[in-house]
């Protein structure tokens, strides 16, 4: 009895093992995992490690010799400049994303209505701001806004306006950084919305027209519901990128005048690198994470819910 069992065991077990491994390898989820593995490793090295290191830095004292727990966070909550930065980051990101989405939506409709033959040229031209590296294009904007030799002011002087302190006055400086961000980011919305518009079935518009829907009703009851998911995803993506913006503000105003255009990333750099307080700089930069995480959860949950409804 015992021999037979052993024999059976000897015979059966390796086959089971082999077939189990084969089965596992044949599973779609395993293949997907293996294919995603290089990206996961890359993300771990490039994102998770720096994130973890930032967390570690944020718990140290200024000279990085002592663990202070949440001391840096508590310290920031008491700083007037920190709350100014929070407020400005929100104003900057929300205003810029709203305008980018609005302009992208409107221009996407214009481009959609251009006959196919000429549409490609327009698409190419309108994408130009988005494909130029922002550090380079912002330098060009800096020259246009230059405190003393602004090309805009020179043009405005012909109609008796100005000179406008584009980067010298707090409100104009905020306007300038938002304007450049909208100029840079609107083409992304345009191209996403254009792709989405092209995928709306023509029959829906025909049905709406038969029902007597006017232009506005077609937009409201057909176009917008069909584009909801893409609008949510672009807004989420843009919100994250805009919140974390560094180059435009850094080049255009460096956070000035009197800190009135600082956003999280520029202030974190100023505090951490330029002022030599790396733990506090890391703490400032980490404040973006919960804000963006909350936005991401709400928007993605909404998309998921609509996906299930569909």
């Amino acid at each position: 009895m015992a021999d037979a069992v052993m024999t059976g065991h000897k015979y059966v077990t390796p086959t089971r093992k082999r077939s189990g491994f084969r089965k596992m390898m044949e599973r779609k989820s395993t293949i997907a995992f293996l294919m995603a593995l290089p990206l996961l490793i890359l993300l771990s090295v490039m994102v998770l490690y720096p994130f973890g290191y930032s967390l570690h830095l944020a718990t140290l004292n200024k000279s990085m010799t002592r663990f202070v727990g949440f001391g840096n966070f508590a310290f920031l909550f008491k700083r007037e400049t920190f709350w100014l930065v929070v407020q400005q980051s929100c104003i900057f990101a929300i205003t810029a994303v709203v305008f980018k989405a609005l302009i992208g939506f409107i221009v996407a409709h214009f481009v959609h209505n251009i006959p196919n033959k000429g549409q490609r040229k327009w698409r190419g031209m309108l994408l130009v701001p988005w494909v130029i590296p922002p550090a380079m294009s912002t330098l060009a904007w800096l020259w246009l806004f230059d405190p003393s030799y602004s090309a805009f002011n020179w043009l405005l002087s012909f109609v008796g306006i100005g000179p406008i302190p584009w980067t010298g006055d707090a409100y104009w400086a905020r306007f300038s950084v938002i304007l450049v961000n909208v100029w840079y980011g609107a083409p992304f919305f345009l191209i996403m919305y254009l792709a989405s518009l092209k995928s709306v079935p023509e029959q829906l518009y025909e049905a709406a027209a038969i029902d007597g829907a006017n232009w506005w009703q077609r937009i409201w009851f057909v176009t917008l519901p069909m584009m909801r998911n893409i609008i949510s995803i672009t807004v989420l993506f843009s919100l994250i990128v805009t919140f974390a913006n560094f180059d435009i503000v850094r080049i255009l105003t460096a956070g000035g005048p009197i800190d009135k255009t600082h956003v999280f990333a520029t202030w974190a750099f100023w505090v951490g690198i330029q002022s030599g307080d790396i733990p506090l700089g890391a703490t400032v930069s980490l404040f973006m994470f919960p804000i963006l995480a909350v936005c991401a959860v709400f928007i993605l949950r909404d998309i998921h819910r609509r996906g299930n409804e569909a």
Binding site: P147, S148, P163, P165, W166, A254
Partner: peptide, 19 residues
């Protein structure tokens, strides 16, 4: 000082002299 002095960076004074 120039009205836009609060927005000056380290290149602004150089440019102002050269101009």
């Amino acid at each position: 000082y120039p009205a836009d002095a609060p927005a000056w960076d380290d290149a602004s004074n150089n440019k102002f002299l050269v101009s």
